[in-house]
Amino acid sequence: MSDLKAPIAVRCTPELVYNYAAGRYGSLFLQGLKEGRILASRCRRCARTLVPPRLACTGCFGAMEDAVELEPRGELLAFTLVAFPFLDPFTGIQRPIPYCYGMVRFAGADNTFQYFLSEKDPAKLRVGQPVRAVFRAAAERVGEMADLLYFEPGIGG
């Protein structure tokens, strides 16, 4: 082959669009948010409670058959700062950065729930602090994740 002077690249932007089914359990959770409630699934066999609710129990691999409501407050078990820009998959526009998101253990749950925190400065947060869920105003809730605005510092846990 003759000497190549300028290697060539092409820009390629395949369009990937997905239309995910939330399924029965995911739909139940989103409907709960519309009502300002946090719903979890409970396993009859091993009594595990998981949020968001799902079919398969992570403890015994059985089907989780019961739905239970959790108090919308818990304990902040971990947090970090998101500073990398990305397009919000639900809105298609860039979410303002930086912000904090964390892992919250609801009272009565056996796992942790990840969500936005109202606090934007990680220096003002601590592991173990109580937080509470803040929802959109009832009239504005439509049954989507954004119905839950964030967790803010709260009392109890």
Partner: peptide, 11 residues
């Protein structure tokens, strides 16, 4: 299948 997400199909 709107009633099941894909992991639920596997289950």
């Amino acid at each position: 299948r709107d009633d099941a997400c894909y992991s639920e199909l596997a289950f």
